[in-house]
């Protein structure tokens, strides 16, 4: 039973990824639609990371010294300054660890 569920789930995740890449689909993206879709990356990715920082245990964080908040602030500053994924992740994860487990 679990096997069947896994196979069906595979069908779903793959279909959601593949569907709109299929050439014979009767849709043509208008210039307006393409322009709208240009905003999909910042929109979706922001909607993924912001709740990780601000929502914990189904509640909005209120503590300004929360390790997530402090480390995310560092991450934003480092990413503006360096534009490097390595530096941003490295320094902010370090900050997170220090604030959470050391201080």
């Amino acid at each position: 039973m679990i096997l069947l569920t896994i196979l069906l789930m595979t069908g779903i995740t793959f279909t959601t990824r593949y569907l709109f890449l299929h050439p014979n689909l009767p849709i043509k993206l208008s210039p307006q639609m393409s322009s709208l879709l240009n905003f999909s990356a910042p929109a979706v990715l922001t909607a993924i990371w912001v709740p990780i920082i601000f929502v914990q245990d189904n509640k909005l964080i209120t503590n300004l010294s929360d390790p997530y908040l402090v480390a995310a602030t560092i991450a934003i500053l480092v990413s503006i300054k360096t534009k490097s994924v390595y530096w941003t992740v490295g320094l902010s994860v370090l900050t997170f660890t220090v604030v959470r487990y050391v201080i």
Partner: peptide
């Protein structure tokens, strides 16, 4: 353990410079 922070950090690193 709060290990999900690393995921948030990568997305911050990828999104913020594109603004």
């Amino acid at each position: 353990l709060g290990l999900d922070f690393a995921i948030a950090a990568t997305f911050i690193a990828l999104v913020i410079p594109t603004i």
